[in-house]
Design a binder for these strands. Sequence first.
DNA 1: CTGAAAGCGCTTACAG
DNA 2: CTGAAAGCGCTTACAG
Lengths: 340, 340
Amino acid sequence: MNIAGGKRGRTTIHDVAAAAGVSISTASKALNDTGRVSVETRERVKRIAGEAGFRPNALARGLLSKRSFTIGLLTNDTYGRFTLPLMQGISEALVDHGVSVFLCAIEDDPALGQIHVEAMLEKQVDGIIASGKRVDRQLPVDLSKVPVPVVYAFTEGAPDSVTFRSDDAQGARLAVEWLVKSGRHRVVHVTGPEDFFSVRERAGAYRSVIGGEGLVLYGQWAEAWGHEAVQRIWSGQTGRPDSIFCGNDQIARGAVDALRERGIRVPEDVSVIGFDNWEIVAAQTRPPLTSVDMELKELGRQAGLTVLALAEGRPVEAGVRKLPCRLVVRQSCGGENPTE
Amino acid sequence: MNIAGGKRGRTTIHDVAAAAGVSISTASKALNDTGRVSVETRERVKRIAGEAGFRPNALARGLLSKRSFTIGLLTNDTYGRFTLPLMQGISEALVDHGVSVFLCAIEDDPALGQIHVEAMLEKQVDGIIASGKRVDRQLPVDLSKVPVPVVYAFTEGAPDSVTFRSDDAQGARLAVEWLVKSGRHRVVHVTGPEDFFSVRERAGAYRSVIGGEGLVLYGQWAEAWGHEAVQRIWSGQTGRPDSIFCGNDQIARGAVDALRERGIRVPEDVSVIGFDNWEIVAAQTRPPLTSVDMELKELGRQAGLTVLALAEGRPVEAGVRKLPCRLVVRQSCGGENPTE
DNA sequence: CTGAAAGCGCTTACAG
DNA sequence: CTGAAAGCGCTTACAG
């Protein structure tokens, strides 16, 4: 049924109303289940709208309601290692509420960031989620005085804002305790650069579980570093560890490869645990890596629901929310491997 | 300067006009550099708008102009290996035109796809880019009769549409010819599942360069397969190759690792080339992988500019556009290594 | 050069 | 129960 008439445009509520023989206001009420409309009229309008494939213009609606059902996701994470899972969580949480997400990848370019923020604000986003790849760095844009709510994820937020991040200490504890429980007692920690907040958090937790004799090796977030660390440890004169807790999966991968090349069996001789649970690395390692998952998708979900709450004026407590990590057990750590 | 008056909302053109002592229409013309307005008035209005941080409401503009300066990117690529670079290209190309991008990750869920498409259409996107991870599969949504232009990237499009993909054959030729030119003549091709169109394209190109005696091994897109393929080749009775052209970087990585474990030096004894130039894999391999780059960002740029052209009613020729690949030379292939 | 008016597509009091 | 009117923020003919 083509009720759009001669006009070239899409079917509007005007067309629907005309076809149903009612006024525009009645059509609106019928379609939105508001106001007082007879059941019969309501159903007729709905049927006609359905047949015509009527789709209400969100621009017009937004103009009235001051809500665009749109939010912006700002990120400087190029690789997408953090962004994609986060995005998925946000999107999943918000699609049910009719909210769509603008993705703005801004690298570390303040000018580009500014342009994207302007564009989003002109488009009347209901809120912004700012996401990064490390919790102790800010994005290169000042979001402190945009006229919409902002939620931060994995990046440092403004003082009085809501910020989501994983609980690095708890995640590290999970890993180290697992090693200890499975009978490993000489655990070393090979991790990234010490100036990362997460690195210090994880190292601190490692030390608190292991006690005084812990050994932490700081380096780069790269396979090569994991490899080198193993060389260094096994060619040194200190006692050999029976397990390595790594700061990320790439380091763990490098370590596992280096161990294999030395004829050291994983997990029989040495257990290895990574961090990030980055499927593409963790699952392809031989043997596949046990790793700490930061639950980025869940983090995204919560961040999404939180901007939504703020956009709707519901009260949200400011502060940093640390979300628990989860240990994903694969074959790279030995001992009893109690579960899974 | 706060000119927004007592109203709780944002500064509107009404506020600006009032503060400048002109009518709304004059303010509009002044701000948009249209119509006949005295230089003095124009500048005063602009200055006042600037001071007040006036930001035109894109919803209102879109309602009039029938253009939302918004497009949708639909993708079923969860890992983001393809999506993120593509997205970056699209975004870069369009940000200059004031266009923002909705990202919709739909997995392979038709219902979710439908919901996202509906949401985008309600929001009056000017166009849609449908992207996937293989050119011989369609997304789980029917885009053939949406009322806005659609461009396909890395996924199979409707018959009469514009589709972008890399030139797999040319990319493969680049790799194989490089090996041959650098003095390698016993090249084998270890690649993914034969039912991928790209796999057949690349294998075909490989054969056309190598001639009759080519050997193609089909398998999985995984490191384990690259590893296994090397075992198989080197434990078989056929002649040993002096180079391996792999269907992707993960396979190449597996192959390089397997070669090293056998004491075969890369690139001295055997050259290896990958495909995808996936930084995270290619750069971390020891030695780093020479690889074929599909130029996804450029592909994104072109796809973006093309939807834009279509949205503006400019003529665009339908059909499949194959974009050339580029060989990124790292240390995994030996011989003369003429350049870079 | 400037402004009043109409209108984009919709919703929401307010009358009837 | 139904509809005419006003209005969201802006642009664009059209008068003056």
